[in-house]
Computed example of a mutant assay.
Amino acid sequence: MRNCSTKKGRHTLLLSLVLVLMLIFLSGCGSAASTGAGAGGTPEVLRIGMMPSEEGEMNRSQEQFAKDVAEATGIPAEIFVAEDYNMVIEALRTGKIEIGLIGPFGYIIATERAGAKLLARTESDQQANTVILVRADSPYQSVADLKGKNFLFVDPASTTGNLYPRATLMKELGLSNDELDSFFGSVAFSGGHDKSLLALANKNADAIGTASLMLPMMAESGLVKEEDFRVIAESDPIVSGAPMLYRQDLPEELVTKLREFMLNYHTQNPDFLKSLGGSHFVAGSDSDYDPIRKVAKDLEMSPEELLK
């Protein structure tokens, strides 16, 4: 009797272990399916990483973009609002988002750090560059007049809000990148082009570096008046538009569908393209960003320095 009881106990224990292993296996499969995990897996939701905006019209055009993406792909889409460019890059790297909108220099960092791929980039009928702005009622007439003053950049990984304004200031002042910050009384990052412009308008900064198209865009929305500001320096033209990136493990069929959708999107939602400083999307290529790489190299600004 004792031997029979022992055998039954062992059989019961073995059966229990098998059931536990099956549950673990099924749970793992369910988790992978629900998140679209795994190389080439189709996600159940397309999460789109973007920077926050204080302008209501821009926010509405972003939400409309998500709705249009969902309609074009048949996959629900939602906006993921990041605090800065680094958050978008990390979200792509860790699989928290499938698509990310970022600046040209951010694109270079994202390809190196997250293995992200170019989906499409904006192109504009207008020439894009960056400007150094002060208030029109300020006494500053040149960047040399800003010595000891408070300067505001946008984001460490921003092309038009850090890279090109910095290069312009260095050229105007004859300073190295290492010497530049100590020229000012203080240097900070606002986290957004609109935030920089509003900070300048509210006298929370003496000067800012921002995209040349930002002032007329915000003036059109009624948030500021163009005549309240003055340009004291501007950069060389920027040839590369804002890139839309995708996570490298998305199915190729989905990537093709998204790219075709974006290349025709200017006819559907021109306000969204306008909010990005562009008039339409083009397929683009990695070599489009070689001029940005050269500027970053000249400034000795590496991803390691920016994202440490």
Rank of each mutant, 00 (worst) to 15 (best):
M1Q: 13
T6Y: 12
K8I: 14
R10T: 07
L15E: 07
V18A: 15
L21K: 03
L21Q: 08
I24H: 05
S27P: 02
C29V: 13
A32S: 10
A33D: 08
G36W: 01
A37C: 10
A39M: 10
G40F: 12
G40C: 14
G41C: 11
T42A: 12
T42P: 01
E44M: 09
S53H: 13
M58S: 12
S61K: 06
Q62C: 07
D68W: 13
V69W: 01
P76E: 11
E78N: 10
I79E: 07
V81A: 11
D84W: 07
Y85A: 08
N86K: 14
E90G: 04
R93L: 10
K96A: 14
I97S: 04
E98F: 09
G100L: 06
L101F: 15
G103Q: 04
P104G: 10
I109L: 05
E112Y: 09
A114T: 05
A114F: 07
L118M: 11
A120L: 07
E123W: 03
E123L: 08
D125I: 15
Q126M: 10
Q127V: 10
A128K: 02
N129R: 05
T130R: 00
I132V: 15
V134S: 02
P139W: 04
P139Q: 06
S142A: 12
S142G: 10
K149H: 10
F151K: 00
F153Q: 00
P156V: 03
P156C: 03
S158M: 01
S158W: 00
T159E: 01
N162V: 00
Y164S: 00
R166V: 07
A167K: 02
E172Q: 15
L173R: 03
L173F: 12
L175F: 08
D181Q: 10
D181P: 04
F183C: 06
F183G: 02
F184Q: 01
V187D: 01
A188W: 01
F189N: 05
S190L: 03
G192S: 15
D194V: 05
D194I: 02
K195G: 04
S196A: 12
S196W: 01
L200E: 01
A201W: 02
A201K: 15
K203W: 05
K203N: 14
N204H: 13
L213W: 14
P216D: 09
M217D: 05
M218T: 06
S221V: 11
S221K: 15
I232F: 03
A233W: 01
A233V: 05
I238E: 00
V239M: 08
M244H: 04
Q248V: 10
K257H: 06
E260A: 15
M262A: 04
L263V: 08
N264V: 09
Y265N: 06
T267K: 14
L273Y: 00
K274D: 05
V282E: 03
A283P: 11
D288M: 09
D288V: 10
Y289P: 00
I292A: 04
R293K: 14
A296M: 03
L299F: 07
M301A: 11
S302F: 08
E304Q: 14
E305T: 13
L306A: 15
L306T: 11
K308Q: 14
